[in-house]
């Protein structure tokens, strides 16, 4: 298995809720430093797959590795052992995640949101964590909003705080679940700019998105999913400009 050189490696990943099969054998490799965009119609399983990567969802068949380690399990010989909650949590702490609806902690200021996990999960000293939090909030252009509560921020600002919150944990991989889908059109640009800068800095990113412009410009690989499987994947030029499959063409003709 050449799992070592890939940040994310999925082999025939299956996931179902009861009798509803959401993922029906997903194979994907994301190299370190790569940006991969998952596109496709809603219900195609792309968000579910993203959530499997940090074990927010359990997979029922197949194998999923992050940075060479199995997600959610430990293998000894040919036996799999489920990881304890604390072990799962420790692995999640190394993966940043950004949600469609931001999910900022409503009772905390922007700064407190960003400081929370470094101090309480990683045990970093408070002064150090605050300094680092100010740095990442500055980086996403919100250095002047440290003491604002989420309800006092626009959607675009909230999402940038959410990105800063993930970045403050120094993740080796960032997952974005439709980060701009809940935003007013004029606020999308700021968030995409932050993500673009992040990609340029070499962060490994898996992005579920409907922003084809972003995918074309930033992605190393575009993956088109439909019906719980990957229909086609490749460079943005191949998949977005010259799709081979009829389903990809049909989808793109609707969103472009």
């Amino acid at each position: 298995m050449s799992a070592a050189r890939q940040m994310v490696l999925a082999e025939s990943v299956h996931k179902s809720y009861g009798r509803l099969e959401v993922l029906r054998g997903v194979d994907l490799a994301v190299g370190t430093g790569q940006v991969v965009c998952l596109v496709g119609p809603s219900g195609s399983g792309k968000s579910t797959f993203l959530r499997c990567i940090n074990h927010l969802e359990k997979i029922q068949a197949g194998r999923l590795w992050v940075d060479g380690e199995l997600v959610g399990y430990r293998q000894q010989g040919d036996r799999l052992y489920e990881l304890r909650e604390s072990e799962v949590a420790r692995k999640r702490a190394e993966i940043g995640m950004v949600f469609q609806h931001f999910n900022l902690f409503g009772h905390m200021t922007a700064l407190q949101n960003v400081v929370e996990a470094p101090t309480h999960v990683k045990g970093i000293r408070r002064e150090k964590a605050v300094a680092r939090a100010k740095e990442v909030l500055e980086r996403v252009g919100l250095g002047d909003k440290l003491s604002s509560y989420p309800s006092q921020l626009s959607g675009g600002q909230q999402q940038r705080v959410a990105i800063a919150r993930a970045l403050a944990m120094d993740p080796k991989l960032m997952l974005f679940d439709e980060p701009t889908s809940a935003l007013d059109p004029e606020l999308v640009g700021d968030v995409l700019q932050v993500m673009r800068d992040l990609a340029l800095s070499g962060m490994t990113m898996v992005v579920v998105t409907h922003e084809m412009g972003f995918a074309r410009e930033v992605a190393d690989k575009v993956v088109f999913m439909d019906g719980g499987v990957i229909v086609e994947s490749g460079s943005p030029a191949d998949v977005l400009a010259a799709p081979k499959h009829e389903r990809t063409r049909a989808f793109l003709s609707k969103v472009l």
């Binding site: 420790r90 999640r92 999910n103």
Partner: peptide, 19 residues
């Protein structure tokens, strides 16, 4: 989503509940 965000940051169930 609040609990999910906390889990994704690596907080345990009890930490998430309390904090």
């Amino acid at each position: 989503g609040q609990g999910e965000a906390a889990s994704a940051l690596g907080m345990t169930r009890l930490q998430t509940m309390r904090r």
